[in-house]
């Protein structure tokens, strides 16, 4: 039985990985590449993602407390709390807790190839 992962989880986890690395402006292009890598990795385990660009705009509308704005090709993460630990906990609670560990591990692995390149 295949399982579909929502776009929100893909975006939310990408933002979480960015915050882990003290990055608060994330490129949409990188997010698209992240989703493609993640999709490939998850297929083996019978999981699929449904991410597309329109969902980024929806994400901003649905989670304005996480996204400050979208400018040209970048998403600015809200850092109102000015407390990276709290922000990470929040993102983790909203988009990671409750997920199968297998999926979380693949998300972490896919993000490494984006953020830790070069």
């Amino acid at each position: 039985m295949c399982k579909i992962i929502s776009s929100e989880v893909v975006i939310g986890n990408f933002l979480l990985e960015a915050v882990e690395r003290n990055t608060f402006d994330v490129s949409i292009e990188d997010m698209v590449i992240y989703d493609e890598k993640l999709s490939e990795q998850l297929k083996e385990h019978n999981y699929f993602t449904r991410f597309n660009f329109e969902e980024i705009l929806d994400f901003k509308d649905n989670y304005p407390f996480f996204v400050q704005g979208i400018q040209s090709n970048y998403i600015r993460i809200m850092n109102e709390m000015d407390n990276k630990t709290k922000l990470k906990e929040q993102l983790g609670r909203y988009f990671r807790m409750g997920m199968p560990t297998l999926v979380v591990n693949e998300m972490i692995s896919a993000s490494k190839s984006i953020f830790d390149m070069g």
Partner: peptide
Amino acid sequence: SDFIMPLMNYLNIIEDLYL
């Protein structure tokens, strides 16, 4: 809302059509 979120993730973010 924050308290409930992990449960929402578990049940609604991954869709299984018949479970």
